[in-house]
């Protein structure tokens, strides 16, 4: 999935959290989104993930302007084409590991009787934990469940918000590797927000934010950020 961000701004009340920013991410790109806390990484990811609407500007996913889509169209978009991995995993604690991964299938009506979900969990080393409640898993295990959930419907765009932030360095590195490998296998675009240089170093392309603006960008095209130019 290709991403186009044009003069996007996002304000919450009187606070401008992001923008104006603009860039293009071609399909299949793996990009690290860098910046300190409060730089606007999560806000940008929320805009790309269609969980927020920009105050100004446009976000185009495969040419579709997200601001013009209705809530149900955005929901369909999130369900069918996006996979999201959070820093705090965002699993449903009352569901088992397998049920958490099955959630997107339940939402979309796909019935493969848990085949793909189970396969993903086994590939991620959680074969013995399928029926454990999410609340009873370790941090690393929960993050792997979250990754499996993000991949179960073969998304075209993978977004990860500090996926290793709550993990130790070994688990964190494993998670980042998993995400990159999965994105490559699916041919999906991957945007991962991180403040860890070690994690970012695994990516060829970077976008650095500071105070809501693009400070520096290394992207596949020759586009430079308008924010940095400003």
């Amino acid at each position: 999935m290709s991403i186009q961000v044009e003069q996007v701004e996002k304000t919450f009340g009187s606070v401008r959290a992001l923008g104006p920013v603009g860039f293009v991410i071609p399909q299949g790109t793996q990009l690290a989104l860098l910046g300190e806390s409060g730089s606007g990484k999560s806000t940008l990811l929320n805009l790309l993930g269609c969980t927020e609407i920009p105050t100004k500007g446009r976000v185009l996913l495969d040419g579709r302007d997200t601001a013009t889509l209705s809530d149900s169209e955005l929901s369909k978009l999130r369900l069918s084409t996006l996979g999201y991995v959070h820093q705090f995993f965002d699993l449903v604690s009352d569901l088992s590991a397998l049920e958490n991964v099955l959630l997107p299938q339940w939402l979309s009506g796909v019935r493969d009787h848990g085949g793909r979900a189970e396969q993903l969990l086994r590939e991620l080393g959680l074969g013995a934990r399928l029926h454990q409640l999410a609340a009873n898993l370790s941090g690393g295990e929960q993050q792997r469940v979250a990754i499996a959930r993000a991949l179960v419907l073969s998304p075209k765009l993978l977004l990860a918000d500090e996926p290793s932030g709550s993990l130790d360095s070994q688990n964190g590195a494993q998670v980042v590797q998993l995400l990159r490998q999965s994105a490559e296998q699916l041919g999906a675009t991957l945007v991962m927000a991180t403040h860890s240089q070690a994690a970012a170093s695994q990516f060829r392309y970077h976008l650095r934010l500071r105070d809501g603006r693009v400070e520096h960008a290394e992207l596949p095209s020759s586009t430079s950020s308008e924010g940095a130019a400003q």
């Binding site: 969980t51 149900s72 929901s75 449903v92 009352d94 997107p104 939402l107």
Partner: peptide
């Protein structure tokens, strides 16, 4: 709220 937040994130519509 937390469970519903996950649902919305994943793509459940308001109507659902």
């Amino acid at each position: 709220r937390p469970a519903l937040a996950v649902l919305r994130q994943l793509g459940a519509s308001r109507r659902l």
